[in-house]
Design a protein around this nucleic acid. Structure first.
Length: 233
DNA sequence: GACCAGGCACATC
DNA sequence: GATGTGCATGGT
């Protein structure tokens, strides 16, 4: 067999494994209905607030912003930093997240007239670069915004994604964010709906079965080859 | 009381 | 370039 054929075959095997994982997760957990948020702006705000934070706490902060009538671009824009920090307090890291939200909103007003609609026509790669240029928006937050707020076919990688991929031997333990994203992007059809559901399902199974003390018993991926005692993070 | 949660930027070596 | 640390609330 030629080298290129071997690579092709390896790629097909990975694609099959990724598909099997998805099928098993979906059969068990069903549709996850992500992103939980009513508006595009709410999704973006939630993506920043949920950084290293339990979603339940984010919901409280979002509710505060809603009650204050500030869950819009204009609303956040007119709040000063300390007011904003106080409203998002339940989400933790409130001082730094207030700055991050302001960084985003200021960029939106400076470059796009404060209107998210003006971002719709921006090419996905360019939009990602723009988002990553904002201090406080890293890879995961940028990709979450691209996928869930702008419906771009971008695979979101997070700690759970890494754990599942490592445990099932799909990638080397020292792989970085880009390599993990590539693993999924290059072996799955470029389908927004699929990426949406797949990431949400990985978070779901990660929360229930892939914590540090691996509880593989009952995990929908239990029958697949895995190494529960692998060291990561 | 310890540990964790849908990260990120920055300091230091 | 890799590793360590601050940021902070609320649930289990």
């Amino acid at each position: 067999m030629s080298e290129s054929n071997a690579l092709l075959e390896a790629g097909e095997m990975i694609a099959e494994q990724l598909d099997e994982i998805y099928q098993l997760l979906f059969e068990r957990f069903g549709p996850q209905h992500w992103w939980p948020g009513e508006t595009q702006f709410e999704i973006i705000t939630g993506a920043i607030l949920t950084q290293n934070t339990n979603w339940a706490n984010v919901e409280k902060a979002i509710a505060n912003l809603k009650s204050a009538g500030c869950l819009t671009a204009e609303g956040l824009y007119r709040l000063d930093l300390s007011q904003l920090a106080e409203l998002i307090r339940p989400a933790g890291y409130y001082n730094i997240k207030a700055k991050r939200l302001k960084n985003f909103i200021n960029r939106l007003f400076d470059n796009y007239a404060g209107n998210l609609t003006n971002l719709e026509s921006v090419d996905t790669d360019k939009l990602r670069v723009e988002l990553l240029a904002i201090k406080g928006i890293g890879h995961e937050t940028a990709d979450s915004i691209l996928l869930y707020a702008f419906n771009r076919a971008v695979f979101v990688v997070d700690a759970y994604t890494a754990r599942v991929a490592f445990r099932h031997g799909l990638i080397e333990p020292d792989s970085d964010y880009e390599q993990l994203g590539e693993l999924f992007q290059s072996h799955l059809p470029s389908d927004t709906k699929l990426f949406n559901e797949y990431h949400a399902l990985l978070v779901k199974v990660g929360k229930e079965f892939c914590r540090r003390e691996a509880r593989c018993s009952g995990c929908p991926l239990e029958k697949l080859p895995h190494t529960p005692d692998i060291e990561y993070f």
